[in-house]
């Protein structure tokens, strides 16, 4: 297990380095921060001063060398916009994104496994057809549109929920609900398909023959064997959520890492962009390790 984690860490570190180098140079193509942060009538001298202050006047290769040196000392630079360490800003945003992703994913997993199993057991039933509809909506409706319709209905017309912001549990309902739809639609289909093939396995016939009831048959005998492909998809979807839900966070004014990412890209706050990508990559790496552990717990054959 430790050897596996080490191998993965090296592979991830390699691709992360390539990614960081690309982001470093490409993000500097988007323009000069001095033009964005100083007033429009700023003199050339003021701009020079601004660039000198933030080290943006040096040759780009030198900037890159300095950045690497600082990163190796765990110094990720300052945010241009907020004049605070970039890593602090990113971690604060992550403290919002992480619970959002975890709550959504927990609800998705519980609902998808439960409903998907029941649908596989009653193919063509009401739940089965309902699930197809939700999956289709999830794959066809843009989340910003669902969010807007939800705001019009639940916040403006019915006035049940706040339109945006954070603070009370009520603020979380719409973001979680909208983030829920797509991963649920995907995962429930995988659960259903995987359960369908598992239910036709000979051991299920044996269990039925010896009189196992439907409940234990689904949730004890079959589910564990049907879970492996499901976990792969759960991993993909969780990774997408850990990347930050840009659209949903923007619409609901949720101070997570997705909103931070798009804001800092648009504001050319390079250090924050780099720190956000790094922290996200680490989060996804940890999650992939957890997925691997889940594999080996569910299927002892993988452990060898």
């Amino acid at each position: 297990m430790i050897k596996l984690v080490g191998q993965r860490a090296i592979a991830s570190l390699l691709s992360l380095s390539v990614l960081m180098v690309m982001v470093f140079f490409l993000s500097r193509l988007t323009g000069d921060p001095a033009a964005l942060f100083l007033p429009i009538d700023a003199t050339e001298q003021m701009k020079e001063q601004f660039r000198a202050l933030h080290g943006l006047d040096r040759p780009i290769l030198e900037q890159f060398g300095l950045y690497i040196r600082d990163v190796l000392h765990l110094d990720f630079g300052e945010s241009l916009r907020r004049a605070r360490p970039a890593i602090d800003i990113v971690l604060e945003a992550y403290a919002w994104t992480l619970p959002l992703a975890l709550i959504t994913m927990a609800l998705v997993i519980v609902a998808a496994i439960f409903l998907g199993s029941i649908a596989a057991f009653n193919v063509g039933g009401v739940i089965d057809r309902g699930i197809s509809v939700v999956s289709l909506i999830g794959a066809s409706a843009p989340d910003f549109w669902i969010a807007i319709v939800a705001i019009v209905v639940f916040a403006i017309n019915l006035a049940w929920l706040p339109t945006s912001g954070v603070g009370t549990p009520w603020h979380w309902i719409m973001p979680v609900g909208i983030l829920f739809i797509r991963p649920f639609g995907l995962i429930v289909q995988v659960v259903r398909g995987s359960m369908l093939s598992a239910l036709s396995a000979p051991y299920v016939k044996t269990a039925r023959a010896k009189g196992v009831k439907n409940g234990p048959l689904i949730f004890v005998h079959t589910l564990r064997n049907a879970m492996l492909p499901v976990i792969t998809v759960i991993g993909d979807q969780a990774a997408a959520l850990l990347n930050g839900a840009v659209i949903v966070e923007t619409i609901f004014g949720f101070p997570g890492v997705g909103k931070l990412m798009i804001d800092s890209i648009l504001q050319r706050d390079f250090n924050v962009v780099m720190a956000a990508i790094l922290v996200t990559a680490i989060a996804i790496f940890i999650m992939n390790i957890l997925i691997d552990i889940a594999y080996s717990i569910l299927d002892p054959r993988i452990r060898q």
Partner: peptide, 22 residues
């Protein structure tokens, strides 16, 4: 395949902004 991996992990928002500005 390794190139494809890097492309997949590149943030598409950043890519869009880079292309938009450049």
């Amino acid at each position: 395949m390794r190139l494809a991996d890097v492309i997949m992990s590149f943030p598409s928002l950043l890519l869009a902004v880079v292309v938009l500005y450049v």
